[in-house]
């Protein structure tokens, strides 16, 4: 396996966005992830599934520099990510959301998004100390962009509300908006449907499709809801006990005996 299902012919016209090769990670002597491979091409929507404790979130944390892999390499657009601090990885174009929402709960909705625009603010410390003309121009521009993004997410009218006070579904949406404000090319979503009712999950599916087109993204998605994963992902990687046990398009995965045993079988 080279990080893609064998059955899928690599789309030649599409750039490789992310290449994860032989990544392993240990917590002490516990092997959380072992020889993990993943190759994402531009514009793909890929799911990462597996039972609880399979190491999915650890993979996300390795991708975003929260943990440093014990072995292996992660390349994003050809640039090695291993050894880089999280914020640089994010600035290079990987953005993520969290399993349990981590907004800046006491700040306004607008500020949540504006914070993520910081690397692109375009003014210096001196500008912000003196509130120069440049500062005012750039700040206005930044605010407008943030507002534009919020309006895309139907959050514009709530821009002055405190983020922690939003209803749950909107907090999820705001978190995605904030991730997009960091201007990613790869968006990694950690269980975006957690805690949502079926109706909200439907909306979320549409949302993910929509932002992928709108922002020209590659999306990697960890999810428990089979319905969500099976219906929107182009292909799926299945993990169990830190190892990849299957890859393929949803139909293949669904019929894979190992997967059924490890995961789906328990649901039957």
């Amino acid at each position: 396996m080279n990080g893609r299902p064998d059955s899928l012919v690599a789309p030649e016209e599409r750039r490789v966005v992310l290449e994860v090769e032989d990544v392993s990670h240990y917590f002490g002597s516990l092997r959380a992830v072992h020889d993990f491979d993943l190759t994402l091409h531009h514009g793909e929507l890929v799911g990462l599934i597996g039972p609880n404790g399979a190491g999915k979130t650890t993979v996300f944390n390795l991708l975003t520099g929260v943990y440093q892999p014990s072995e292996g390499s992660i390349r994003f657009s050809g640039v090695e990510l291993v050894g880089l601090p999280s914020y640089e990885i994010i600035q290079m174009g990987i953005a993520r959301t969290f399993q349990n929402i981590r907004l800046f709960a006491n700040l306004t909705v607008l500020d949540n998004v504006r914070i993520a625009y910081h690397p692109y603010a375009g003014y210096t410390v001196v500008d912000s100390l003196l509130h120069t003309r440049r500062f005012r121009e750039k700040e206005t521009e930044l605010t407008e962009r943030a507002q534009e993004l919020l309006s895309i997410f139907n959050l514009a009218s709530r821009q002055d509300e405190i983020a922690g006070g939003l209803p749950y579904g909107l907090q999820r949406r705001l978190e995605i908006a904030r991730a997009l404000a960091a201007q990613p090319r790869l968006l990694v979503l950690d269980e975006p449907a957690a805690g949502m009712n079926p109706q909200e999950v439907d909306q979320l599916m549409e949302l993910i499709h929509f932002i992928r087109e709108r922002f020209d993204l590659t999306v990697l998605l960890v999810e428990h809801r089979m319905r969500l994963v099976m219906s929107i992902c182009e292909w799926i990687t299945v993990m169990d006990f830190g190892e990849v046990i299957a890859r393929g398009v949803p139909a293949e995965v669904r019929s894979n005996q190992q997967v059924v045993e490890a995961y789906l079988g328990r649901q039957n």
């Binding site: 953005a95 969290f98 800046f104 991730a179």
Partner: peptide, 17 residues
């Protein structure tokens, strides 16, 4: 805003860049 975001949630701040 970055200064305040660090107060709110350091990890989240780092993971928005």
């Amino acid at each position: 805003r970055t200064i305040v975001s660090v107060r709110e949630d350091e990890r989240a701040a780092e993971l928005v860049g």
